[in-house]
Design a protein around this nucleic acid. Structure first.
Length: 465
DNA sequence: TCATCTCTCACATTTGAAGCGC
DNA sequence: AGCGCTTCAAATGTGAGAGATG
């Protein structure tokens, strides 16, 4: 009860200061995130990054590591990562290049990875780089460990969210800053397709040291049958030849063939911008656009930012220009029901606040259903229905049922709390995807006892398509 | 039936955390 | 408390083979 009392102001009063225009909002707009080890990421990206997905879950390599600045040192923040489909296609590896192999499979259950340090003060996030090493990818749609579920042979990119919130409950009202990095896009695979990627992984991943040419795997190779040794030799030769190739050339065009299916034809009939935007390598395209930043300074973190919060006026015109005219709108996006499903949806002015009408309608928890399912257009970037879905309370507070939340570090301390009383319409899955969502997701009163369960539900519904 | 594509599994190897004794 | 050693779980790509598909 005390929990509800504590929360009531949040439902009835205007959003916290961070949501209103003012100094705080300005600070939010100054939040910067830079990708650590960008050169490594680029070296992978130039070839076409592949990430292994397995049933038990596989870490990413390179793993996501970012530096953050511009946070309010004493304010608490939550960091999240989700994976967004880059387009609406399935790919196949044909000899030495990726080709579109048809339409994408229905999106698996959307999951969001919560950084285990969350929530933590801004000073904590800024004092050192933030690693998402523990993040795992899986192709097991029934995964119970909270790993991010992806489809093999589909392209994705990680999306980082910074939320100013004391706890997961506060996310309901909090300011979101979303960042993406073009060079982190990847193809999910169950086995490596591109030998160049394999070689890069072996060369840079410490755990794969045993497979390095100069490594101690000679003994291992000596035990191989002549057949496999022969294969290995062939592969080595191929790699050698590969390395001689001009890596500078535009791999995006070299390695991906345009899908010559029906949809492409339709697109070709459309406006030329859309046609141009059709390349599977949206990230590169986007980067090329983004590098037109007039700032002339470090554009990396600038063009990687998908701000969803009020931003400094000086910042918005560029963004608006950036996404309005040139923002390609792949036909694939037409099949996606919501925003944020791709990076090219036209951005509307950055607004991270929950619309006021929502605030009022959500005055009573039971009303949140209506507000989330009917009042917020799902095809707008500010679709915060996913956020509105959250009904959480701080663990340890009086009157709060302290369902521990999954923590990859497995510490006894569980700073975050529960979901509760999720009503059916609180999980408004896209029509064609409804069946893909766990049944629990639409079970009223279902309590999620840990993060593994919690993460099965889309924190950001707009990430689904 | 066959070829191809995709996925799974056991394996050898490395890393790094934890436990232990000094 | 700090150091060095051992143990063991986890992470990694390999390659064979199973299963699905056309």
């Amino acid at each position: 009860i005390s929990c509800l009392l504590d929360l009531k102001p949040n439902f009835t009063s205007p959003p916290p200061t961070s949501m209103a225009a003012g100094p705080d909002a300005y600070l939010q707009g100054n939040i910067r995130m830079t990708l650590e080890d960008p050169e490594l990421w680029k070296s992978f990206h130039e070839i076409g990054t592949e990430m292994i997905i397995t049933k038990p879950g596989r870490r990413m390599f390179p793993h996501c590591k970012v530096n953050i600045s511009g946070l309010i040192p004493c304010a608490k923040y939550i960091l999240l990562v989700d994976m967004v489909p880059e387009d609406g296609f399935r790919y196949k590896w044909n000899k030495d290049k990726w080709e579109v192999a048809g339409k994408a499979e229905p999106q698996p259950p959307c999951r969001t990875y919560l950084h285990p340090d969350s929530p933590a003060p801004g000073s904590h996030w800024m004092k050192q780089s933030v690693s998402f090493l523990k993040l795992k990818l899986t192709n097991n749609t029934l995964d119970q460990h909270g790993h991010i579920i992806l489809h093999s042979m589909h392209r994705y990119y990680p999306r980082f969210h910074i939320v100013q919130a004391d706890d997961l409950f506060s996310v309901r009202w909090s300011v979101f800053q979303t960042f993406t990095f073009p060079e982190t896009s990847f193809t999910a695979v169950t086995a490596y397709q591109n030998t160049k990627i394999t070689k890069l992984k072996i060369d840079h991943n410490p755990f794969a040291k045993g497979f390095r040419d100069e490594g101690t795997n000679k003994k291992r190779r000596a035990n191989k049958s002549p057949d496999s040794a022969d294969k290995k030799t062939k592969m080595t030769d191929m790699l050698a030849r590969d390395s001689e190739e001009d890596i500078q050339q535009d791999f995006c065009r070299q390695s991906f063939e345009v899908f010559d299916g029906e949809e492409v034809d339709k697109r070709k009939e459309g406006d030329p911008v859309k046609e141009e935007s059709y390349s599977p390598w949206a990230a590169d395209r986007e980067q090329s656009v983004r590098t037109e930043s007039p700032n002339g300074t470090d554009t990396r973190d600038m063009y990687n930012t998908e701000q969803l919060v009020p931003a400094p006026a000086s910042y918005q015109p560029y963004r608006f220009h950036e996404y309005s005219g040139k923002s390609p709108s792949p036909s694939s996006s037409a099949s996606r029901s919501s925003v944020g499903s791709g990076r090219f949806e036209p951005r509307v002015p950055d607004v991270a606040t929950v619309p006021e009408h929502d605030s009022s309608k959500a005055a009573r928890p039971q009303d949140m259903v209506a507000s989330s399912s009917s009042c917020v257009p799902q095809n707008l970037p500010q679709d915060y229905t996913g956020v509105l879905n959250m009904t959480m309370a701080q663990a340890g507070k009086p009157g709060v049922i302290g369902h521990p939340i999954y923590n990859p570090y497995g510490t006894a301390e569980q700073p975050l709390a529960q979901w509760s009383n999720a009503a059916p319409s609180q999980y408004p899955a896209p029509h064609h995807l409804t069946a893909d969502y766990p049944t629990q997701a639409v079970h009223p009163g279902y309590h999620h006892s840990n993060m593994a369960e919690w993460s099965q539900y889309p924190l950001f519904s707009y990430s689904c398509w």
